[in-house]
């Protein structure tokens, strides 16, 4: 499997209330990269992530995924594009009352005939694949547990398995560990890292801890008030530089 290339040109998003969340952002991501987007709350990280699969409609600018202009796609084409882009969320966004296996299988909905969904039908090979993905993230025994019975870390691993079900070329991880404790954060990020290294899936991951960014990222972009404040290697940014960008208030919280 080969990861996708992403190119973003002059992306701007202004919300109806006038908030300018992104202001002329441009950058590229090469296939197989583990790009970290770092920034404080409200810096536009979530908006940027959601513009790429158009959960949020950009106000202006262009987004290309493997040279396909996402921002120009018709609804049907957009759905086919979304199938190839897995997404992981801060709040996991699992359907809490449904069993884990259903949550994982729902990652495949873009590929299966819609009529199947009426009966919640998935063929055997897909169900086996779902269990295989759960094995990848280390919780095959939870397949038939209700999603809300799982711990936060386990729920996020279900989120990863759901994204894997899509056979993604690109994974968007929006603050995937912000709701987790430090140890669990590392175990979750290590699974994402493994997919990046083993399968070559391009990863775009937003974080607000510099230590995690330096540990997992191959490249780093810092967003500040909707604009790129830094772009480079994780090793090029240290605490001093971090404070220069975000101000003295932004205390970096160090995690083991």
């Amino acid at each position: 499997m080969r990861g996708a290339a992403v190119r973003i040109e002059n992306l701007t998003k202004i919300y109806p209330d006038g908030t300018r969340a992104l202001n002329g952002v441009s950058f590229s991501v090469t296939p197989g990269e583990f790009l970290i987007i770092i920034g404080l709350s409200g810096s536009g990280k979530s908006t940027l992530m959601r513009c790429i699969n158009r959960l949020v409609e950009p106000t202006s600018g262009k987004i290309f995924v493997d040279d396909v202009e996402v921002t120009a796609l018709a609804p049907d084409e957009l759905r086919r594009m979304r199938r190839q882009i897995g997404m992981i969320f801060q709040q996991f966004n699992l359907v809490k009352r449904s069993p884990v296996i259903t949550n994982v299988l729902s990652g495949r909905l873009g590929y299966v005939p819609p009529a199947w969904s009426l009966y919640n039908y998935f063929p055997r090979d897909l169900r086996e694949q779902a269990v295989a993905h759960l094995t990848t993230v280390g919780i095959p025994e939870k397949a038939h547990t209700r999603a809300d019975q799982l711990s936060g870390g386990q729920q996020q691993r279900v989120g990863i398995a759901r994204a894997l079900m899509q056979d993604p070329k690109l994974i968007l991880a929006d603050e995937p560990v912000a709701s987790l404790d430090p140890a669990t954060s590392h175990s979750v990020l290590r699974y994402v890292e493994e997919l990046n290294r083993r399968d070559g899936i391009t990863v775009m991951c937003s974080l607000h801890f510099l230590s995690l960014a330096r540990r997992y990222g191959t490249r780093l972009i810092a967003l500040k008030a909707g604009e790129i404040a830094f772009e480079g290697l994780p090793s090029e940014i240290d605490e001093q530089r971090f404070k220069e960008i975000f101000g003295e208030e932004a205390v970096e919280v160090e995690i083991a």
Binding site: R79, M81, R82, G86, R162, Q166
Partner: peptide
Amino acid sequence: EAITATGA
């Protein structure tokens, strides 16, 4: 949001 993002 999550199910929409899968292309459903």
